[in-house]
Computed example of a mutant assay.
Amino acid sequence: MSSVKGDFGRGLILILPILVTVFLLYTLYSFLASVTPGIILNADTLEIVAPGTSEFARERVAGFLRVLTFVGFLALTMYAIGQVTETTTGELLEGLVDYAANRVPGIRVIYNASKTATETTFGSEGTLQTPVKLETWDGFRMTAFKTGRTTRDGRVTLFLPTSPNITTGFILEVSPEEITELDETVEEALTRVVSAGFGDADRAETDLEDGVTVVGELQTDRKRQQ
């Protein structure tokens, strides 16, 4: 029974993320296809390009082209805004938006959380860098990230995120000799933090294969010896 349950669990772990991803992508695609205007790209327009095809097929192709056009336009718009923010005028506008958003109590929390998450993921400056281990108490280590900043007295500035919400955390200033750099990428370390530690499951399985003994196996061996 336990074997069947374990096989079912492993299959669920493999399939469920794929199903959730496909569902979210389909929902997003359906939403964009429904909200984008069909004045130019519609089934009637494609009838001129592809005569003889069914209206159902033309409508599906038109919806796909509308979504593709919308995503391309959105990407160009974000790129243009990014170029503008590098100028003095852009910095002034960004400051006005921050000021206005922080004046509204409800919007302030959502705005700052989403901005922090976006800057952490896509920002070119202030992006999380090398993941490190920091011994906060005797025998306890926590995962933190270098920010690329140092204090005037030479201490390294670290960001210690909370789990599983990495948009909140603590700013630490520690001596360089007190931290240990990890042989992993930022994405791997963030996965461990977001998953509340379960992101190390693959590494744990590898350690078991390399010779780490399971406690249950030790107890079974002892019973056999007795």
Rank of each mutant, 00 (worst) to 15 (best):
S3N: 15
A80W: 11
I107F: 11
P105Q: 04
F198N: 06
T85E: 10
V20P: 04
N42M: 10
D138I: 11
V214Y: 01
L208A: 14
D210V: 09
P37E: 04
E125K: 13
V4H: 08
L68D: 05
D183M: 10
V104T: 07
E59N: 09
A204R: 07
V71W: 08
V214D: 09
P51D: 07
F198G: 09
R155G: 07
D138W: 04
M78T: 15
F23D: 00
E209C: 03
E184V: 14
M78W: 12
P164N: 01
I107M: 11
V22W: 07
E94R: 06
P51L: 08
T180S: 07
Q83Y: 04
T220R: 12
V97A: 06
G154D: 09
T150H: 11
D202V: 08
L12W: 14
T69P: 00
G154Y: 03
A201S: 05
R108G: 00
A204V: 15
D207M: 15
I171Y: 04
A80T: 11
L172T: 00
T88M: 05
E119A: 04
G154I: 02
T143F: 14
T120E: 05
I40E: 06
M142W: 02
S30T: 08
L65P: 01
W137M: 12
R10F: 02
T143V: 15
R224K: 14
F8T: 01
D200C: 09
E94D: 12
L19F: 11
S114F: 03
E55S: 07
R60H: 10
T213A: 12
L16Y: 13
V109K: 02
Q226A: 12
T213R: 12
I110F: 01
E205M: 15
W137G: 01
R141C: 11
D207S: 13
G38V: 05
G9E: 10
F31V: 01
R141M: 08
L208E: 12
T27Y: 07
I18L: 10
G11C: 04
T118R: 00
A189Y: 08
P105R: 06
E47D: 12
E205I: 15
G126H: 07
T168G: 06
